[in-house]
Nucleic acid binder design. Structure first.
Lengths: 235, 235
DNA sequence: CACCTAAACTTGTCTAGACAGGTAAAATAT
DNA sequence: ATATTTTACCTGTCTAGACAAGTTTAGGTG
């Protein structure tokens, strides 16, 4: 249904091939010229696709040599990735909904500045806990404006990406975003959710995601237990 | 001396104009077409320049509207920026060299895997402390391979960007890199350097930067006191 | 005046090449 | 056989357009 741009289609194909191990670590992707021929598109379009993969850290390019497939990062690549589900192998990641989506007024104290439009629409509130190997890792609180999301509060989110549901059922795609990071000692409630010992620090993130809908943003607050896993990013 | 690509030259010009306030927050940059005419280059080249600025969070693009200048982030944009000096207004940032560049063997325990070439070359070690408004904020340890860096240990780094010296005197440019982030409680020595109270957490980063020199990497370990400032990034 | 439509302008995507510069393998000379 | 040069191939940069799609503005219509 969605007409996807050629470059995004290609990057999706290559991403899947890399993650499935079809291209081994350290091996070369087909050359840009070859990819042109295979997919019937021109080089700038191919380059645009490869650029996405470079940003995600899946490949490294070397002039005169080619595009080298990288060892997939063991850590959680949340910095650049749109969703957390795509960041780590989905198989190890389990999602638990602590608070089902429910309508709420916007909080009085909100770390982001909120456009008038979104404030008036009301807010869908959602709490999740992500576990890797049965150990709590992320705890995130999400606020989305209640604009054009029919039946959203009835949907099931267990083990499914929030972003995938937004894309498939409502046509909302994440385009990018900004985030702020801090290290802090979590309060007792967050500490308990993450099953951490007192005095242990977490990575605290505030994110504002932009979407293909003009003026529609998703706001997330994330607590991350970085004792065993680090967060990785490429730039 | 250095033939710079057109797109990088343009992004540099625009970056300077934005940071100097020549384009006010919220205002529009000249259209891509206008930038073509002004600088005598074509649109793909202009777009490549603008893309850099989008990645840095300096502008936001809106189809049908234009490139909007963003409010400069108050926090430290270290995630995407190559150097920390460029991330915050240089005026407020002060650099103190805690350990002048000196030759050393590579550490036994090194958080990164080290190419053979770089290990054999020996290592230049360098410790810095960054202060904002006279308050310690970053403490970073840097390891660079001692390959083609004549007189490097004699240079002065006070209030000067390490990356600028590498670029101007040795032709080394930062192309990108990867990083890992954690939250942790610093050891007593780091805590003292950053003048922090016991039990307070820091943002801990390990970065591996890639350069225009094939196989030449810069390794940094950074401790960041996030009590007053957050680290911000755009993706 | 209020409303709607069309035009002008903007960025997004894409084509079809060109040349420069780096890498590695094949061909040649020693 | 070894060392050097050439060649083929790859990515980096750039040109000069085209059409699509979103936004704003200027006219025109009622």
């Amino acid at each position: 249904m969605n007409e996807m741009p050629h470059y995004r289609r290609l990057s999706g194909i290559l991403r899947k091939q890399i993650q499935s191990g079809y291209y081994a670590e350290g091996s070369l992707l087909p050359s840009e010229h070859a990819l042109c021929a295979i997919h019937g598109i021109t080089r700038p379009t191919v380059r645009q696709a490869l650029e996405e993969l470079v940003r995600e850290g899946l490949i490294v390019k070397r002039q005169g040599k080619g595009s080298i497939v990288r060892k997939p990062l063991r850590n959680i690549g949340i910095l650049a990735a749109a969703g957390t589900t795509s960041a780590i192998g989905q198989s190890f990641l389990k999602t638990v909904i602590l608070q089902k989506p429910q309508l709420r007024p916007w909080p009085e104290e909100f770390p982001f500045e909120l456009p008038e439009m979104e404030r008036e629409a009301g807010c869908v509130y959602l709490e999740r806990l992500r576990l890797v190997d049965e150990v709590p890792l992320f705890y995130d609180i999400n606020h989305l404006p209640h604009l054009g999301l029919p039946r959203f509060t009835q949907r099931t989110f267990e083990n499914r990406s929030l972003f995938e549901i937004l894309r498939r059922h409502y046509g909302i795609e994440i385009r990018g975003g900004e985030q702020k990071l801090r290290a802090l000692i979590p309060g007792p409630s967050v500490r308990e959710v993450l099953q951490m010992k007192p005095g242990q620090p977490v990575l605290y993130m505030e994110r504002k995601l932009t979407t293909n809908r003009e003026g529609y943003h998703i706001y997330s607050t994330i607590w991350f237990n970085s004792e065993k896993h680090a967060i990785s990013g490429v730039f």
